[in-house]
Write a protein that binds this DNA or RNA. Structure first.
Lengths: 191, 191
DNA sequence: TTTTATCTACCTACTACTTGGTTGGCAAAT
DNA sequence: ATTTGCCAACCAAGTAGTAGGTAGATAAAA
């Protein structure tokens, strides 16, 4: 099944951005990857800034769906949290890529204001989800030691992102696991 | 007092790298900042890769000294940890810069292998220091809830780094504080 | 002390690409 | 007929770097 060029470009750009950051890839990289001329990309994305907006919006929509799916398929707080940890681990692609939000954050000065706003919304959304998850884990007793779910959430997202960074720098998933080990140990019995 | 050009270049490059990442600044930026011709920079740093090595080595040496100074001036576990948290907060420069290690991590594909190795050593050094700090905090009773100092350390560095990322993306120090709030609450009475 | 040689650190001019983008055109699909 | 999506050709600015040269400082020799 052939996908449309615009989607192929978004996929290619996302891989590149998550591996090398916004300043680390160019339209020439995408052109080669997708198999069209560099100038043709402008038909779909007139500027690199526009591309970054599209990337971030798509990424946020996708994780929104993913979080909803986690809610639907995991009944307990601990199971949900474990699933999110695994989601962040999987986003590493064996240590080759980061979450888009993370990779964009260090080159935020190169990004349009819209994307900075989207990044903020993205993090707020995930922290909101984490807050509810810690609340659930507190009430169903499957996450140990939760006294302030909102503060747990506010600490957990930077932990996941920082652990991604470490693992990405060394291309080593064990380093992600080292970072989240204590958190995993608080989970009753994720299933 | 005039500093030597090489040091001025390192200072300029460090500011730029910590603000915009390795791929986000060029020799032209440094030339303008320091006030010499771009081509002259090659006299001091033959390649951008060599510059990155020098930057990382200097940064690691500086934080090594900083950690030793924290040890000397803060007798309790909680005081030391609080001081490190403040160090990472101060490295944000009001939200304008990141720790060099963090800013380099997302563009690690652009960096020489030596720097990747240095980044790993840097993080190990900080985690080692954190481990000893949590051990101290456990034995002197000034950090609450420490059962496994090494695992605490392994979680704390990514938390600090992730919290930096969040604050940098939005240029808002409150977001750093939100991330480390729970950790701060475990500190008895830092002084 | 003066002169000479060497070193350091800068310069100009240049290289070979590379970057994100513009423009006009054409072929295929609708 | 119109729209979509690609092309080639091009643009101006930018990238990391090379090479030869010069001025000033410093050290060594006369």
């Amino acid at each position: 099944m052939r996908i449309d060029t615009k989607t192929a470009l978004l996929n290619s750009a996302e891989r590149a951005a998550r591996a090398r950051g916004f300043d680390g890839f160019s339209y020439a990289d995408l052109a080669e990857d997708v198999g069209i001329r560099k100038a043709s990309i402008h038909h779909h994305f007139p500027t690199k800034a526009a591309l970054s907006v599209a990337l971030m919006q798509r990424y946020a929509a996708e994780i929104k769906e993913a979080l909803a799916a986690l809610d639907a398929t995991h009944p307990s707080g601990c199971a949900r949290l474990a699933a999110l940890i695994d989601h962040y681990r999987a986003a590493l692609n064996g240590g080759k890529t980061l979450c888009l939000c993370v990779s964009f954050s260090t080159s935020r000065d190169s990004l349009p204001a819209d994307v900075i706003t989207e990044i903020r919304s993205f993090r707020q959304m995930v922290i909101g989800w984490l807050t509810r998850t810690f609340e659930l884990g507190q009430s169903d007793g499957t996450i140990a030691g939760v006294t302030m779910p909102d503060k747990e959430a506010a600490a957990t997202l930077p932990l996941l992102e920082g652990a991604q960074l470490t693992a990405r720098a060394q291309e080593n998933l064990d380093l992600f696991e080292n970072g989240v080990q204590l958190l995993r140990q608080r989970l009753a019995n994720p299933s």
